[in-house]
Nucleic acid binder design. Structure first.
Length: 419
DNA sequence: TCTGGGGTCCTAGGACCC
DNA sequence: TCTGGGGTCCTAGGACCC
């Protein structure tokens, strides 16, 4: 039987590295990238990490350090990052027929068929990605995904590995596992870490030796799988054909708090319109839509509420989605609340060509599908897309990006210039 | 003053059926 | 006086991931 070999390729500080590709002056400097509304830190260069800027901290909390050390700050530029991601993934795909794109900056590769030194192969991958895309990556190689994750973590952390660690040929794998803190293990989050540490399980090695019945009683099958994977027994295969989406969310914090029902409706309508676009992109229709609204989660007496509309016939028609969103806001709105965020969640997703029709349906679905196709086609071509009136024209509440870099690779107007 | 967004899987418990 | 039990389906919530 063929032995599994996985490589986990992970881009180093992905968003920061994207910014550096088109702005080499940032090399060697502390750099951070902020979330929507420039709210909190979502990516840090090694130099920024060394300054003690934590992942996920609020930008205003890090403001002093940022100022004192001249940290370069960027708003997130997801269009640009998504494009860089697809370049990296395309490059990786030339190295193996078996690949799972795990997230925007990570992929698992099947190296089962590779002859010779896997570490050498990893180094070739690393050099090629750097040369073709400018992106620095680290690579962990092992018999299970969980071990590949750990190998990757260590490859990043210790310079002597030079970005590639092959766990399958280690003389002393246990010694290496002992250096990985248990909270860094894939699948072990904050809650499980507390329970594990209380039981004296502090490292990946400790966890691999834990009593399986105790693990099952505390953490269920998920915990059991993690322990087996640490022991080298593969529980998670490569997922090359990603399973169909089950839900789709569009939600965003507002640039400024919303107090009026009109503006809240605009926001919900906008998010419903984006959700409709994404549904059609994936050729899906939704059976139901939930809308939620919330005030700040950092105040007492937080108001959070949601409302669900079920569609008689699953739909991807923006007009219908917006109508449901507006109805929900009518139910959810409360006076004297400073709303910070709302969102729409589409569930009961089905392929659009398998929609169960309804005898009493009064919507002309052929016509609406044609309209949506035309709108999508136009929006794909021009920079200032067609909006629904319900989304509002001004959108004072819109997301703020004060320090966004240019869309270097996806907009003709924003190409980098070489002097 | 200012605190991200988008997902998945598992489990427990209730509803319901025979 | 006596008041079943087992199976399935669904949902909400928790925990995790990036």
């Amino acid at each position: 039987m063929k032995k599994e070999v996985f490589a986990l390729v992970d881009c180093n500080n992905f968003y920061v590295s994207c910014e550096r590709v088109f702005n080499p002056k940032l090399e060697g400097k502390p750099v951070v990238v902020l979330s929507n509304n420039d709210g909190c830190v979502v990516a840090r260069s090694n130099e920024a990490k060394a300054l003690g800027i934590g992942m996920g901290v609020a930008a205003f909390e890090a403001a002093n350090v940022i100022k004192k050390h001249n940290v370069e700050v960027f708003s997130s530029n997801y269009t640009f990052y998504a494009d860089m991601s697809s370049r990296v993934m395309e490059t990786l795909s030339t190295f193996t027929p078996g690949m799972e794109v795990y997230s925007i900056d990570e992929a698992f590769l099947d190296l089962g068929g590779i002859c010779g030194s896997l570490a050498d192969y990893g180094r070739r991958i690393r050099q090629t990605v750097k040369k073709w895309t400018g992106m620095p990556v680290s690579i962990g190689i092992a018999r299970t995904k969980t071990l590949a994750k750990i190998a990757n973590h260590l490859a990043k952390r210790y310079v002597q590995f030079d970005g590639v660690l092959d766990f399958t040929t280690l003389a002393n794998p246990e010694q290496v596992l002992a250096t990985a803190p248990v909270e860094k293990v894939w699948g072990i989050g904050i809650k499980m870490t507390i329970v594990l540490k209380r039981a004296g399980i502090n490292t990946a090695l400790d966890l691999s030796r834990a009593d399986i019945n105790w693990i099952r009683s505390k953490f269920g099958v998920v915990g059991v799988r993690t322990v087996y994977e640490l022991r080298g027994d593969c529980c998670y295969d490569l997922e090359q054909n990603p399973p169909a989406k089950k839900s789709l969310v569009v939600s965003r914090m507002f640039g400024v708090p919303i107090e009026s029902v009109e503006e809240l409706k605009e926001a919900a309508a906008s998010y419903a319109a984006r959700a409709g676009e994404r549904l059609r992109e994936h050729k899906l229709a939704a059976g139901a839509m939930s809308v939620f609204v919330t005030t700040s989660r950092f105040i007492k007496d937080r108001y959070f509420n949601s409302h669900t509309v079920e569609f008689a016939v699953p739909t991807s028609d923006t007009t219908e989605l917006i109508r449901a969103a507006l109805l929900s806001i009518e139910k959810l709105y409360r006076r004297n609340c400073r709303f910070k965020k709302c969102g729409v969640i589409l569930t009961g997703l089905v392929p659009e060509n398998r929609v169960q029709r309804c005898l009493f349906d009064d919507v002309n679905r052929t016509k609406s599908a044609r309209l949506m196709r035309v709108v999508d086609a136009i929006n794909a071509k021009v920079d200032s897309p067609i909006h629904w009136a319900a989304e509002g024209l001004i959108q004072n509440w819109g997301v703020k990006f004060l320090r966004r870099s240019k869309r270097f690779t996806t907009s003709w107007n924003e190409l980098p210039e070489v002097a």
